[in-house]
Structures are given as C-alpha cells and as structure tokens.
Amino acid sequence: MSGGHDNHGGLNLTLHVWRQKNREAEGHFETYSLHGISEHCSFLEMLDQLNEQLLREGREPVAFDHDCREGICGSCSLVINGQAHGPDRETATCQLHMRRFHDGETIYIEPFRAKAFPIVRDLVCDRSAFDRIIARGGFVSVNTGSPQDANAIPIPKENADLAMDAAACIGCGACVAACPNAAAMLFVGAKISHLSLLPQGQPERRRRVLAMVEQMDKEGFGNCGNIYECEAACPKGISVENIARLNKEYLGASLTARPEKESAGGF
C-alpha cells in the first residue's frame, strides 16, 4: 500500500502512546496499531478512533485534553514525534490533519513535559501554573459601570497591533513544552506585552510584571536561553520580541518600582 492522496483505504499507523495512571505512577509507552485512518481527519479524531478501538477491546482509553477543536481554546497539547503540537507551524494539535502523516508511519505521542506541568494521567498535564501566573497580575482592575465610548481612549495603531498579536496567546503551554529548558517566558512575555502596550494596562504595569515573574519562578519553570523554539512551536506564532519586552519591563520595574505602602495606618 502506498501513502498520499491515492490511499483510499486510509492510513495504517503504529502509535507509541505515553500511558501513566496518575501523578505518582511511572509512565511508559504502549504500542497500538490503527488501520484505515482517513487522511482527512484531525489528529484528535485519530485518537478518538484509537479510544473507540480500545473500548471495543475492553481496555482503558487514552486520556488527552481537548475542547474547542478549532485552535482557539488552548486545551489540546501533545508532543508528537518530539514536536509540541506536531510538525506544522502555527497549528494546534486539533488543527493538525492526518494527511501530514504517511501510510505505515510510526508516531510517538507524549504529554507536555515540565516540572511545572505535572502529568495527571496519560497525555493530560496540569497547566494550572499558568492560571496562577495570570492570577498574580494578568488582568486590569477597573470599576465596572456602563461602557464608555469605544474611541474614548486613543491607542496608536502600531501598539494596538502589537498588543493584539500578543493577546493571540491561547495559553496552551507549547512554548514550555518545546523549550529545551522548560521556560515559560513566551507565555509570560505575551501576557505582559498585551497589557503593557495598552493604556488600560498602565496603572498596574510595574506591579504586574514583578508579581507575574515572581510567580513564574516559584512554579519551577526553567531559565530562558534565547533558543527561540517556543516561537516556532507557538500555534499562534507569538514572536520572541515579547520576551525581550518582558525582560525590558522587568528590568525597568525592578529599577523604578517604589516599595508597596502598608495598606492602612501611618505613612
């Protein structure tokens, strides 16, 4: 049988899938054979078919994260043949199609691996470290009320574009997974850039970067070595320019932030 578009019988694949019962258990690769996979289905649909096959055989299906399946929620993960989100650029695993693979191919499927992303089960890792970083400052504090006019705050077009590019981050964690040092600088850089480029982000600008970097370090991510694999793995194509901006913001805030005042009583 030959691969490619003439293969009406579908793809026959050998999968080596990481299986791990829970956080504490030792994981290992298990090998499965899949037959007749349509080249038009997505990578996650291929895993759905694997799970149906496993259920039919009375075996435990493979746990993996997914939600929107259209590249916007950041739930899917997977390191496919050593590449976070697989071989394509600017493509999340859910958008990856089986036509990128050939008949008879062997595929290794692993979870994102980092100390800060402990494996929960099989291919599912706990990415709540990112949530804790966001909780330290990845927001703006505003009094609620009726919305003001959309054009009340002038924003330079260039800044709006750069902030929008940074805000495209879906927080999937591929940057950490692809980084040889398991650093989270692209994620934090995107979040810091997104808010520091906009007027609404200014009041908490210095406090935000200091707190978010402190949390990032506390979570046990590695140090950035400027290898830039994160940018290549990012399904949203977030630029490492955002890491430079994070460095600059952090340096600036460290040099200029005033000590936080006690909340009440005295001065």
Partner: peptide
C-alpha cells in the same frame, strides 16, 4: 535549574525550527 525544570525527559525533543 533547567535540568530540574524538566524531570521527566522526552523520548527525543525534535527541533521545531528555530534552534541552532
């Protein structure tokens, strides 16, 4: 620190395109 940041190793972390 970087070694510690990834205690469980990948089978093989393949290049995504930007490393040298």
């Amino acid at each position: 620190e970087n070694r510690e940041a990834r205690p469980s190793r990948y089978k093989d972390l393949a290049p995504k395109g930007n490393r040298t």
